[in-house]
Nucleic acid binder design. Structure first.
Length: 476
RNA sequence: GGCCCCUUCGUCUAGUGGUUAGGACAGUAGGUUCUCAUCCUACUAACGCGGGUUCGAUUCCCACAGGGGUCACCA
């Protein structure tokens, strides 16, 4: 049997990083077994539908480097891949369950359900449905259903132990008495997740269901549905949830729950893949950095973690930095495109790259790290004076000397600039640090830059002279 | 609250019935150095608590505590 995995995202907004996390595991596992990875759009909640969300899912997958084998955009033999286009299928299956006595029509109003829930809660009981409609005469209920608003609920058996077999967690058992008679078809005729997911996973021949651990508690319903339909359930794998630093489920309230955030922050997809994979699995050789191919090669589904990790952005930063440094200059320029300020020319950027490559943690830092190369800095003379550790007059004299030295430098190589300025520094009586920091601030208004002589060289003689002039003039 | 899942340094983890409990990130200190960064070196830091089982438990078992998830006509 071919391995077939899927993600089943809802188009309700920008994709959650958890969705990509699941997709990554699904994809890696499928590819490792020469199987297929499917994307099925679960748009059964019309109230939460968000325009453009579907596109965002696919572009996020593409960004991360995952290509689905089957989906609404990639085609496939198991379509349609959008649940809203499969309503007939669900109705047919719901009907089957009703006919077999595994499901029933329910005519209870939301108000009644609400009050039942409140009563139960007040009595200290679980707020479950009281099965008010469960014992209606099936024929009568069926005819009422033709005119009256209704939902369809699945029947949960009493006093049974339902066992979920999870690939890494092993057997998890549930008491059926704690499971609610779940609505499987809503009053608007759309199925709920529980029906749709089981029907589709079966019809699409999904072999491994990888989903977040928040689904564990509704698994017994799914297992029961497989039993009612007399289908072979897939293998289940419930993955740990990504968590916020406060340990709660990674939520949209925290910006970094959205895939888009990572993109906009300038994290490389390679780094995100690497980071997410390492949250759930350890490379057998304790190797920290690996790409998608290595992951597919080495990944072991039986050896994944079940502890929900806190998303540690510091670790991601580190991984991202390593990935940035592993890129060729031209590839880095390519990746930097979306982050390149308009007033930074391609030519200048390519000259800057070697100077900032080992200083970039994220791509978004480009502008902050380099703006003085292409914009006139506003030098803060107070900071300059403080860092120069000398009097205004002598600082002025010193900078004048620097200016003269640069003016007289005809070679304009990094080496000649360095040699000349080191001599100026020695003759000035200033220590190296304040001496060079003064020049750095005078030219860039920045306390941290690439090596000074490289910067001077790249800025060019004219710019350096002009900036020194301005700075000297501003010292009073 | 019911049900379910989880529990090794701050974070992510490796690991074993007897180990100096290993690594990575972060942190700290130092080296390189004109700053920052990179790179290198070193250091700090963990088996939740209590019972058992055992000659011996971080490791096996049981309770407890703590954290998380879930209890919708949302997924």
């Amino acid at each position: 049997m071919t391995t077939r995995t899927r993600i089943a995202p809802s188009p309700t907004g920008f994709p959650h990083v958890g969705t990509i996390f699941q997709a990554l595991l699904d994809y890696v596992y499928a590819k490792q077994n020469q199987g297929q990875f499917i994307v099925r759009i679960e748009d059964t909640d019309r109230g939460r539908f968000v325009e453009g969300a579907e596109e965002a899912i696919f572009s996020s997958l593409e960004w991360i480097g995952i290509k689905p084998d089957e989906s609404v955009v990639h085609g496939g033999n198991y379509g349609p891949y959008r649940q809203s286009e499969r309503l007939d299928i669900y109705h047919q299956h719901a009907k089957e369950l009703i006919d077999a006595g595994h499901a029933y029509y329910c005519f209870c109003s939301p108000e009644r359900l609400d009050s039942v829930r409140k009563e139960k809660q007040a009595a200290g009981l679980p707020p479950m449905y009281d099965r008010h409609c469960r014992n209606l005469d099936p024929k009568e209920a069926a005819s009422r259903a033709e005119t009256e608003p209704h939902v369809i609920r699945m029947k949960i058996p009493d006093n049974e132990t339902i066992i979920l077999n999870d690939i890494v967690r092993g057997e998890i058992s549930f008491d059926s008495n704690t499971v609610d008679d779940q609505v499987i078809v809503k009053s608007d005729g759309f199925p709920t997740y529980h029906l749709a997911v089981v029907v589709d996973d079966h019809l699409m021949e999904i072999t491994h269901v990888v989903r977040g651990e928040e689904w564990i508690s509704s698994s017994p319903k799914h297992i029961l549905l497989y039993r009612y339909f007399d289908w072979q359930p897939p293998q289940f794998l419930h993955t740990p949830l990504l968590r916020n630093p406060d340990k709660s489920k990674l939520s949209k309230r925290h910006g970094h729950a959205s895939v888009k955030w990572y993109q906009e922050q300038g994290y490389l997809p390679e780094a995100v893949v690497n980071f997410l994979a390492s949250r759930i699995w350890n490379h057998p050789d304790e190797q920290e950095i690996y790409n998608m191919d290595e992951l597919i090669q080495k990944f072991d589904i039986n050896n994944i973690h079940i502890m929900s990790p806190i998303v540690d952005l510091k670790k991601l930063d580190w991984i991202n930095g390593l990935w940035i440094r592993s890129l060729s200059d031209s590839e880095l320029i390519n990746r930097l495109k979306p982050f390149k300020p308009e007033d930074l020319s391609d030519e200048l950027l390519s000259q800057i790259i070697p100077l900032i490559k080992e200083r970039l943690v994220t791509l978004a830092e480009l502008e902050g790290l380099t703006s003085f190369f292409f914009r006139e800095p506003e030098v803060d003379s107070a900071v300059l004076l403080k860092e120069a550790k000398t009097e205004t007059a002598s600082l002025k004299t010193y900078l004048e000397t620097v200016k003269r030295t640069l003016t007289n430098n005809s070679e304009w190589t990094i080496e000649s600039i360095e040699a000349a300025l080191r001599q100026v520094q020695q003759e000035s009586g200033l220590k190296p640090r304040p001496a060079f920091m003064s020049i750095r601030l005078a030219l860039t208004d920045s306390l941290a830059t690439p090596p000074l002589f490289d910067v001077i060289h790249l800025l060019g003689k004219e710019t350096c002279i002009n900036r020194l002039d301005r700075t000297i003039a501003s010292l009073t």
